[in-house]
Design a binder for these strands. Structure first.
Lengths: 224, 224
DNA sequence: TGCACTGTCAATCGATCGTTTTAAATTTTG
DNA sequence: CAAAATTTAAAACGATCGATTGACAGTGCA
């Protein structure tokens, strides 16, 4: 069955552009990667970007959205299982967050390995692209709120969310470094990629579980 | 005493260039910030960058090194006090790492507040600038190794260092966001800047202290 | 006063960027 | 097959970039 889009990856110019862009953006950064470098790698003409996507920025948007739903579906069973538990632990949350990211970072199909690095470099790009990316992943973030409330009832809500956001971004960056040229800043010496995932789960769980040293009532407790 | 360089900040063209560059690099990123935007903000000519520093990249290097020693001196008393303790805790390590960074991020003098953001945007720049920055801060990283060994004797060394590098980079980024336009990704809703520092210490301590789920002997224990 | 040095300036270099136009080639469709 | 729609290709546009030049003004010293 030729043209089957579910099992076999397509080989359109459009798809080749997306794959080349995902890889080159991830390694060089958004601004440093010229559209000519991308079209050359894809074996296409410079004008192909305008024809298929509109502009360089629209190409970035298409790249972000290409895999958002894929990751949401990967996370859903983990997340639902955690929601169904009687007692939710920080480790449950950490696994539901990290595992789907790790699946993407360690995937061998196509250019999926580069996706997290691509998402990370967007955070260093224009505010408009940052906002677009955050909006695309916001649903997957927000759904963790009830889990956090059940796992960390003694932590103030603002601190809960601060910790989750901190750990969430940190794990994304750490997993992105598996594909990217490792930042010397976070050079994990001699740890297998698979073990990095386990250590990230440990780290995120420990970060969330840490006792809160500041008094919970910094603002006057409203009545009661 | 005119020209006193220890108490009063200078107002050279060179200094004005450094200050303007620190602020503009931090907000726009290294590549997106043109030397013309910097020289305009500094009230100088485009050629001033070449004359005083050599090139745009040399300007970045000069900016990094301007405050490295300043932060090392700020950290030294905290670090030495931790070294002199009989028992070292993860919280001691977290404070010795975070406090000097927070002092820089919350400083009101000059453009110091922008320095951490500037360091962060370098991590998204060229590999050469990244390597240069990492080398500049490497001494301050490496000195934590003996503290980590004493505080976390049951954690494998590679995991210890992985966790420290992860927490160290994460706290830098979080504190940089206090100056920068907050990334929506890590929007800390309604937490004072001073409280963010305390929450970061808690988070880093918890991250370091987390139990290690992977067996310590992944590689065969050599003899003994 | 004459000279060397430091610092600043306007002007411009070559290169590269994202984008656009126009037309040819290809595929689809009637 | 022929017309229509889709896709690709070459060429160039205007803009901006970092880097560089050479002239000009201020300074301190002989």
């Amino acid at each position: 069955m030729p043209g089957d889009r579910t099992l076999r990856e397509r080989d359109d110019t459009s798809t080749r552009l997306l794959d080349a862009a995902e890889r080159i953006f991830a390694t060089r950064g958004i601004e440093a990667a010229s559209v000519r470098a991308i079209t050359d790698a894809a074996g296409a003409n410079v004008a192909a970007v305008r024809y298929h996507f509109g502009s360089k920025q629209d190409l970035v948007k298409a790249l972000v959205e290409r895999r958002v739903e894929e990751m949401a579906e990967c996370r859903r069973p983990l997340f639902d299982a955690a929601m169904r538990r009687d007692t939710v632990t920080s480790r449950d949350i950490a696994e539901a967050w990290v595992r789907p990211l790790a699946a993407m970072a360690l995937d061998g199909r196509g250019t999926r390995r580069a996706y997290l690095s691509f998402i990370v470099v967007i955070q260093g790009a224009s505010p408009e692209l940052r906002a677009m990316t955050s909006a695309a992943f916001q649903p997957q973030h927000k759904q963790f709120a009830p889990l956090l409330e059940r796992a960390l009832p003694d932590i103030p809500e603002a601190v809960r969310w601060f910790r989750f956001a901190l750990a969430a971004e940190s794990t994304v960056r750490a997993l992105a470094n598996l594909d990217r040229a490792r930042a010397p800043w976070t050079a994990h010496g001699g740890i297998d990629d698979a073990d990095v995932v386990e250590h990230l789960v440990d780290a995120m769980a420990g970060l969330l579980d840490s006792p809160c040293s500041t008094p919970p009532a910094n603002r006057a407790p409203s009545a009661r």
